[in-house]
Design a protein around this nucleic acid. Structure first.
Length: 305
DNA sequence: AGCTCTTCCTGAAAGC
DNA sequence: TGCTTTCAGGAAGAGC
């Protein structure tokens, strides 16, 4: 699944080939993942790529206005890879793989292809730098740009589970299940901890762990778990460095205890039960007991606020 | 505010 | 062996 390091890897690959190239044609297959397919098909051809940016897991391909268009608005193609999306540059003569749904023909005989078997990805066009900026503005902080103090400030008052907050794109953008689990493992924090109970020191540790994990993953060109590939079609190798994620039953690299899997924040979460002790057993026991009671005798009266 | 459930979709893995 | 069922998962929205 493409998360920040994978998307960053794709973006770097695209930066090596796309800027300066003009899109000479667009072909679309299935379009249910595109906001406005007609607009995309009519507005992209003739435009020249000027730059490529990443906002969290979103890819922003910025175009110059067409030479013949009078309004000097910048124009953006925004792509989210979802679970199985790929953006690759290939020779146009190469046969297209299964599930290739969008083709952007370049002026050098190659084409940018969007391939996505599950079509959980999204694609949209935005007119004007302001629109793109506004879109960018609704996202949370970039994990590699936020300061330790800001990180603390964003999390220390939240009563939600730390894992849920790491995954929340409005809090931080770009972190998904893999890097949430790897960061928490590195910081020795159980995913179900309530953020507000973690205190400044442990939040700082998490901030440091998160940055280290993401930086290392980018260096290794991301994790290829199911089918991530970069813009050239090559897999990453960070999956070999995973300490917790997708390693249920395997030994914790730190202490040898078997990695466990549990549902936290609605997602599979992998952690070491020894290095990452669950939050206060007493509290949990009390909460579980009251849940059990509530289930046995369905809610009597709702408390007013 | 925050949790859970549902929806989207397909391939892989499990079940029979 | 081969067919059928189940499930995962990023994000958004509903309902509680």
């Amino acid at each position: 699944m493409p998360e920040l390091p994978e998307v960053e890897t794709v973006v770097r690959g695209l930066r090596a080939v796309l800027p300066g190239r003009t899109i000479v044609g667009v072909r679309l297959g299935k379009t249910d993942f595109i906001d406005d397919p007609a607009l995309l098909a009519e507005s992209v051809p003739g435009k020249r790529v000027v730059s490529i940016a990443r906002y969290g897991k979103f890819i922003d391909i910025a175009f110059d206005p067409a030479a013949n268009s009078p309004e000097a608005e910048q124009f953006h193609l925004i792509v989210h890879l979802g679970m199985t999306g790929r953006l690759v540059v290939r020779d146009a003569a190469e046969p297209a793989p299964k599930h290739a749904h969008a083709f952007f023909e370049l002026d050098d005989g190659r084409e940018l292809r969007y391939v996505d078997s599950r079509r959980f990805g999204r694609m949209l066009v935005l007119d004007g730098a302001a629109a793109a900026g506004k879109f960018h503005g609704v996202l949370g902080a970039e994990p590699l740009e936020i300061s330790a103090a800001d990180f603390r400030a964003r999390l220390s008052a939240r009563r939600a589970r730390i894992k849920a907050l790491l995954l929340d794109q409005h809090v931080l953008c770009g972190i998904g299940n893999i890097y949430a689990d790897e960061s928490l493992w590195t910081a020795r924090i159980h995913p179900a901890h309530i953020a507000a109970r973690l205190g400044a020191e442990r939040l700082d540790e998490l901030w440091r762990a998160m940055r280290g994990v993401l930086r290392h993953a980018i260096k290794m060109r991301g994790s290829s778990i199911s089918d991530f590939v970069d813009a050239d079609g090559n897999p990453g190798s960070y999956q070999q460095r995973h300490c917790a994620y997708d390693r249920e039953g395997e030994p914790c690299p730190r202490c040898g205890t078997a990695i466990r899997r549990a549902m936290v924040a609605g997602r599979s979460s992998y952690f070491c039960s020894r290095c990452q002790p669950a939050p206060r057993a007493k509290r949990r026991a009390r909460r579980d007991a009251s849940r059990k009671r509530a289930r046995a005798k369905p809610s009597p009266a709702k408390r007013g606020r």
